[in-house]
């Protein structure tokens, strides 16, 4: 069925090539000016955020319009703990992440009983509430003014002082995040999530505790979002309510659908493209038409590659390996095609 050569080709396409892409972009950024470093840094942070969102929306097939709430928890958690209480960034990172996970579990337990549009509305409300709190609870969040003076990311007392050092850390964390996502996807846990996306009644009939697995995916997504929020706070050194507003939801959805929802690397590829597209268009002197061109590209990709770019690449690779199989074993392949 699956020859060793096919497995090898597939592994190159699904793991080696995307890792190489991330490393190439990283190297290019490290040899560029500060502006490019910032853009690629944002792409990496969004890549982490979308990889988490993909657990809930891709693998498990549920809708959440409120993931920005958990990014806000991570961002403000890190800001408050490091800037006001002088915590170590790593400790603040993990404490915020665990806090976001607990909040997600408490909110998700009743909310995830809802389905489809109702779940979408409930999660959207969650994002709005968090946004309001970050504006109104001035003692804690400093409101519209925003929270400044957040130190750069550091590891055990060693501060990553330059943006480029931080970018390397972001890229490594992104790769770690995708590695976790890939490992979990191809496991009993991942199969349970994907069976929920496929058919809830069937998943239930096979003994999958649907409510528990949905909650697990929601909590994981929230922890990724919190990590992304924390990293943003360190990378920029400043956060305000707008950073974690509704625009973040739209941006991340675009990335997720463009790159390929439910795939392992799709969210990262989507994050990279959506972050860079405006800059590329500006370089082509299409600045006035930037938004128009941006939308045309998006719409055409959604029409012609609805499963996203990563799935498109996967289909291309599958076609090549199939052709190769036809050349080596024409009769077997012909039999398969006829069947």
């Amino acid at each position: 069925m699956t020859s060793r050569a096919t497995t090898f080709t597939r592994r190159v396409a699904t793991t080696a090539a995307p890792v190489a892409l991330v490393l190439v972009v990283l190297l290019l950024a490290l040899n560029s000016n500060g502006y490019v470093v910032t853009i690629v840094g944002f792409a990496a942070i969004y890549g982490i955020f979308c990889t988490g969102l993909n657990f809930f929306m891709g693998y498990t097939g549920q809708a959440s319009f409120g993931q920005n709430a958990f990014a806000a928890l991570g961002g403000y958690g890190t800001a408050i703990l490091t800037a006001t209480y002088y915590w170590d960034p790593v400790a603040a990172f993990f404490v915020s992440m665990i806090f976001a996970g607990i909040v997600a579990a408490i909110i998700g337990y009743p909310t995830l009983k809802l389905r489809g549009h109702y779940l979408a509305m409930a999660t959207f409300a969650l994002g709005l509430i968090t946004y309001e709190i970050s504006i109104e609870w001035i003692d804690l969040t400093q409101g519209y003014m925003g929270y400044s003076g957040i130190p750069p990311l550091g590891v055990f007392g060693f501060e990553l002082a330059t943006e480029k050092q931080q970018l390397v850390a972001l890229a490594l964390l992104l790769l770690l995040g995708v590695w976790i996502s890939t490992r979990l996807r191809d496991s009993r846990f991942g199969r349970a999530l994907r069976s929920i996306a496929g058919s809830e009644p069937a998943a239930q009939a096979l003994g999958v505790n649907v409510a528990r697995y949905k909650l697990a995916a929601f909590v994981i997504a929230a922890m990724y979002a919190s990590a992304a929020g924390s990293l943003f706070a360190h990378f920029v050194g400043f956060i305000s309510p707008e950073v974690f507003g509704a625009a973040m939801v739209i941006q991340s959805f675009t990335m997720l659908f463009l790159g390929g929802i439910g795939t392992t690397w799709g969210p990262v590829i989507g994050a990279l493209i959506v972050s860079m597209l405006p800059e590329v268009l500006r370089g082509m002197h299409l600045k006035e038409l930037q938004d128009v061109a941006y939308c045309i590209i998006l719409v055409s990709i959604l029409i012609f590659a609805p499963k996203g770019i990563f799935a498109l690449i996967g289909e291309g690779v599958a076609a090549i390996t199939r052709r190769r199989a036809t050349e080596t074993a024409p009769s077997a392949a012909a039999a398969q095609a006829a069947g």
Binding site: R188, R191, A192, R194, G198, S199, A205, G262
Partner: peptide
Amino acid sequence: QLFKDLTVAQNVMAGFHRVTRG
């Protein structure tokens, strides 16, 4: 009620949930 986005083999593999752990 199949898992349409999964392959034939992956559908069956998901069926082992009850008798596996992890």
